[in-house]
């Protein structure tokens, strides 16, 4: 990064440190903070969408839809997260490649499953093995995002369906008395009023989501915990910058990062909570 960094062995003190913390490897560490924030920013709305659909489906009057909704919520809540985080990306990946294989290489007659191997033709690979590294990264990230959205969507769905059930029935009946259709009651009375009941559960989920991001590495994405471990470990002379075990420092940085993220989230959630309480027939709403 700096001119004087050309020969790390000759450096000492501050100069050594300034070169050390600006190596390309450290840059990857800094970028991974952005990756985590980006994942959070995308996973939260996605989980909300999955959850909203799940909640509506599980409250549906059609038994077929209701079974799907209830099944989705129950299954994911009951099975350990880690199973899903491993299962969904691999299953999706293989499903995509299977379909592409059938479409793009109909002439190949060999089986796709050969013993332990999952073999599709070269053109069916996703991403293609010739694709540049960032394509692989984006693909992996998208699969991870889907897994997060799917798993956290089920929890969100349960919170939202509980919140929908908590809206006072008299409110809905009043809507009906004014001649609202059931669609209008849902859109104008039920949904706007349920948020305040959903918020405590949703804010818990948001905090859990923040803490679950290190699972990214399971999915092959190099996140902050991976880099902290990798950079902090004892480095022998084969590395340009050798140092003893510094993991405590790196994990200290992660701790500060997570605490800051939690603190800022809490500030935001408190504000949201008082805003949503406004005009509600609840203790918090009346206290305003």
């Amino acid at each position: 990064m700096f001119e004087y960094c050309a020969n790390p062995d000759s450096l000492e003190g501050f100069f050594w440190l300034s070169c050390y913390v600006t190596t390309p490897k450290h840059m990857s560490f800094y970028v991974s903070f952005l990756v985590v924030m980006f994942l959070l920013a995308l996973a939260a709305p996605l989980a909300m969408a999955f959850g909203f659909l799940g909640a509506i489906a599980s409250r549906s009057s059609k038994s077929f839809i209701k079974i799907i909704g209830k099944g989705y919520l129950a299954m994911i809540r009951g099975i350990p997260d880690i199973v899903f985080f491993l299962f969904i990306p691999i299953a999706l990946d293989q499903a995509f490649e299977f379909l592409r294989h059938k479409i793009l290489c109909p002439e190949v007659t060999e089986a796709i499953r050969q013993g332990n191997d999952f073999v599709v033709c070269k053109a069916a690979k996703l991403p293609l093995s010739t694709a540049s590294e960032w394509v692989h990264d984006v693909y992996g990230f998208s699969l991870a995002l889907l897994a997060f959205g799917f798993v956290f969507g089920a929890f969100t769905g349960n919170v939202l369906s509980g919140a929908m059930a908590a809206v006072p029935k008299s409110q809905l009946e009043t809507g009906a008395a004014f001649g609202f259709s059931s669609k209008q009651i849902f859109k104008r009375i039920l949904v706007p009023q349920m948020w305040i009941y959903a918020l405590p559960g949703l804010s818990n989920l948001w905090m859990i989501l923040i803490k679950a991001t290190p699972l990214l590495f399971l999915l092959g994405i190099e996140d902050i915990v991976y880099w902290a471990k990798e950079l902090g470990g004892m480095k022998t002379g084969v590395y340009e910058y050798s140092h003893p075990d510094w993991r405590a420092w790196y994990f200290g940085i992660l701790m500060i990062f997570y605490l800051l993220l939690t603190y800022v989230s809490q500030l935001f959630l408190d504000r949201l909570s008082s805003k949503l309480s406004m005009g509600q027939d609840t203790m918090a709403g009346k206290a305003l």
């Binding site: 592409r100 793009l104 293609l128 022998t236």
Partner: peptide, 28 residues
């Protein structure tokens, strides 16, 4: 998703751990 890509050279992806010097590691 299903249609991209038809030309390719012989690319081989080499999987390694990157955490076992001096066999393999991630350099600076």
């Amino acid at each position: 998703t299903f249609m991209v890509g038809s030309t390719y050279a012989e690319t081989v992806r080499m999987g390694t751990e990157g955490a076992y010097p001096p066999y393999n590691f991630i350099n600076d």
